[in-house]
Design a binder for these strands. Structure first.
Lengths: 355, 355
DNA sequence: TTTTAGCACTCATTATCCCTGAGTGCTAAA
DNA sequence: TTTAGCACTCAGGGATAATGAGTGCTAAAA
């Protein structure tokens, strides 16, 4: 059954009042806000219908109404207005993302923090490679007579380096040769293939040469290993406590623990998988499969990071979430992230190693 | 006035019972635990004395006693026993710190997380350079005809890289020359000196050559800028809610906010400065100057990261903190960190850049 | 047929009162 | 100096009552 116009107006008013106040909404409040020239009694009748239809719920007989998950869903799909970001907010977002010299990880982390501050809800971020990573290129830089820096560039454009000490002195020519071997035999191989190739090489190479190759390849394997994992971060968990539904610790603790653990447990713990294409996704209350999220809503967006990686950023809050505000901010973020990673704007790399 | 032995035993018993139960301690409980063969009445008399002297406090007339900050201080200085770590715990710590392929930042961050898990309190970590950082060496790697990777190594052993696209094609020889210029004119300079030198160079170089130099030096300046800042992280803020003193949100919120903000605000917000030498430091309740920490205790240790940086790691909790347990874990961490950074065990570096 | 005014009813919330019991300080005897 | 005894204090918890916002229903009005 399609709702008539008046019912929609009333439902929208109830959702918005409830989002603002966190208190069950009575017929009087609706009459004041909805801009309908009817009495509270009429509204009560309509509210009774909406309850019957499953869009509203009643905490107890003598209380006002609260939107049901179905009510929120209708609101999100049809009734919700566009929310405008202020100039200050867009400025803030741009400032946060336009930092140069930051690594992928940090840009994403920072994005999560800022989004959390702007929305007053916790935010999680995740990134994972879309396909297996391989080494694209090796470079070796002589530092001293018996030490060089190995630079490994992967096909997801990550560059890592490590200082390698050699057991004996090595000439430029030898280093050149080593570089040739590495680039001809180990480029484009997956992690497992690299290990295999290294094994084969052991039997038919000079022990000295093999040791050198092995040190660099082991390092490359570590790099691939690290790159193949996903990164997950959360930000602003404490924002939860600002919302009345989590004023009791019994309610807040499980969700906070879930969010904290998410950082440890990897993407399996996330409410959705990293799907293709850029898109926005809203899960309301029981639409979440995960038990810990049964009474919470998640608004999230996924985006591409270059050609090889995929990222997701999501806002977690009570079902009484300010969907209009959150979706506006989130889509601005997702657009900005897509744009900046699309441009390949990740200019820098970093490393530590012993002297 | 020096306390007699019996008073010390009673004080110690009260502190330890209170740490375990979070309830004011009565004379009966002390009599059971302290191992003194005297009646509760005698203990009551001693407790009255200890209250008079300022070591104990009484929430109200008909309640038991609670240690005052002065009482905790005496306990920490004189009465506290050595706490032993279990084999599992040392194993856990070693596992967490012995990860290869991690950057400084991540090792420290991870250390904070694990310490927080082991102690059930929030943990903050910070690191800052002891002196100004300079570039130690430039390397340039040709990638394609019109793109090369600039590798900048600083004197605190950080290596960063960036892909630089050139307006026109460049030969190996020209790249060689560029490298020579950079290494002879910009190595060992501070941030400001580099900017100066670059300015001077502008007037007397060919525009094309200057543009190239400028791109690399600008990158180096960004690296120095980033390295000169301090890093601050916090972990396990939600652990606060597990302790009864923060069961009310009014108590928990300000401290949680303080800890969250610490990440943004830099070392100025920290309870202490990064002092020389490896040492442990305990601040109890009002000994903290910062208003937000007036009712909390901070146990922290600082340590050296190589020759050029200084780190600090600290545990934050209620004054009723398990000082013996926390100090044991913390000092094990500080020792481990000193040892690992002393050995220069930071083997890897990372980077992202466009293709 | 739809809307509205009126009214009795419901029930979470808050305030109030009382009771219980752990713990104290003091006194007087050991 | 230590201990037993005892009157006193006071936070915490449970029961009870008062409050008031909001409802559903009925009957009249539009």
């Amino acid at each position: 059954m399609e709702l008539n116009n008046r019912k929609k107006k009333i439902l929208r008013a109830i959702v918005e009042i409830y989002i603002a106040t966190a208190e069950p909404v009575g017929s009087k409040a609706v009459a004041e806000q909805a801009g309908l020239d009817v009495s509270t009694a009429t509204i009560r009748n309509e509210m009774a219908d909406l309850t019957e239809l499953g869009y509203l719920e009643q905490p107890h007989t003598s209380a006002g109404r609260v939107p049901s998950p179905m009510g929120y869903r209708l609101y999100v799909n049809e009734l919700m207005g566009e929310h405008q970001l202020t100039i200050q907010e867009t400025q803030r977002i741009n400032d946060a993302l336009n930092l140069r010299m930051e690594e992928l990880d940090r840009v994403i982390d920072r994005a999560g923090k800022v989004l959390s501050q702007l929305s007053d809800y916790p935010v999680f971020t995740a990134a994972a490679p879309k396909k297996r990573i391989t080494v694209k290129r090796f470079d070796l830089l002589m530092v001293e007579e018996n030490a060089f820096i190995a630079v490994v560039m992967t096909d997801n454009s990550v560059v890592k380096n490590k200082l390698i000490r050699m057991p004996e002195q090595l000439s430029d020519t030898q280093l050149q040769l080593l570089s040739t071997v590495l680039n001809s035999s180990f480029v484009g191989l997956s992690l497992e293939e690299m290990e295999e190739t290294l094994d084969k090489m052991e039997t038919r190479s000079a022990p000295g040469a093999f040791q050198l190759i092995s040190m660099v390849v082991q390092f490359a394997i570590e790099v691939l290993n690290q790159q193949s994992g996903q990164t997950i971060h959360t930000a602003g968990i404490t924002h939860l406590l600002e919302h009345p539904e989590y004023r009791s610790l019994d309610k807040a603790k499980p969700l906070m623990n879930y969010l904290s653990e998410t950082e440890e447990q990897g993407t399996s713990n996330l409410p959705v998988t990293l799907t293709e294409g850029q898109n926005m996704n809203i899960l309301i209350g029981p639409e979440n499969i995960n038990e810990a999220l049964k009474d919470t809503s998640v608004v999230m967006a996924s985006y591409d990071i270059g050609d090889n990686m995929r990222g997701i950023i999501g806002v977690v809050g009570p079902t009484r979430m300010d969907y209009a505000k959150v979706t506006a901010r989130l889509s601005y973020f997702a657009d900005s992230l897509t744009r900046m990673f699309g441009k390949g704007e990740l200019p820098s790399g970093e490393g530590h190693h012993e002297e």
